[in-house]
Design a protein around this nucleic acid. Sequence first.
DNA 1: CCTTGACCTTCCAGCGACTGGAAGCCCTAT
DNA 2: ATAGGGCTTCCAGTCGCTGGAAGGTCAAGG
Lengths: 127, 127
Amino acid sequence: MNISNAAGRSGVPPKTIRYYEEIGLVRPLRQANGYRAFRDTDVHKLAFLGHARALGFGIEDCRALLALWENETRASAEVKRIATEHLATIDAKIADLRAMRGPLAELVEACAGDDRPECPIIRSLEA
Amino acid sequence: MNISNAAGRSGVPPKTIRYYEEIGLVRPLRQANGYRAFRDTDVHKLAFLGHARALGFGIEDCRALLALWENETRASAEVKRIATEHLATIDAKIADLRAMRGPLAELVEACAGDDRPECPIIRSLEA
DNA sequence: CCTTGACCTTCCAGCGACTGGAAGCCCTAT
DNA sequence: ATAGGGCTTCCAGTCGCTGGAAGGTCAAGG
């Protein structure tokens, strides 16, 4: 299976697949002509990575989750630990964004938005 | 005024100030020995930038806001436009994070987190 | 047989906004 | 004279791709 086919089946773009190979997340075989040859297991790995990335896991987390997936004697506690930490990271990011959003929304609300120079947003930034 | 002093007064770290000079956001003078010489206006600009960055504005937005701040004939509509677009960007990011958080929190909840391999998180990723 | 076009390959650069570190100059105090 | 602290520049790395250039490969059509 060529890369574009693997991309179509896994949902991971070709460029990203090459990158994942470069950093050792997948190891497709090679055909005689140098083209990558993807097995079903490679495609499954790529789909797994796609799902993990969609949940926001970082690359190193993905690497660890992949290893746990392939490890039949894993402890679910380790998976849960990674996911829980990531959840905390997400919550921290949401909190940061909300801390920005509040004041910003107030300022936008207070700004007349006309052709005069007076502006609560600018006044707040210079204060 | 030297850079560490300007950093202390503006709240912007020395490294970041040098970076801001490099990209043309501030233009401190130079002393005979090559040290940067910050005027009060430079410090005010840096503080302005610090506040704008704290609200999450990107560097190019900061550059535009700085120009509007210094432009006495500005229209507040332009400031409001930039802020409104940025608010939408923040809302989009929050939405993305919440879209991740929901399923992830459910999975964490459902995972036993013990020494057995069975794990809803892994099962969800491979599906 | 030749060309066209769609693949594939590698390598390099850039994104945003810094941040860390190395190498070396400057100034003051002892 | 030296020790220290602060200043300078420049380079590399962060994170996860993504775009593009230059060139090899392959199947179909004239």
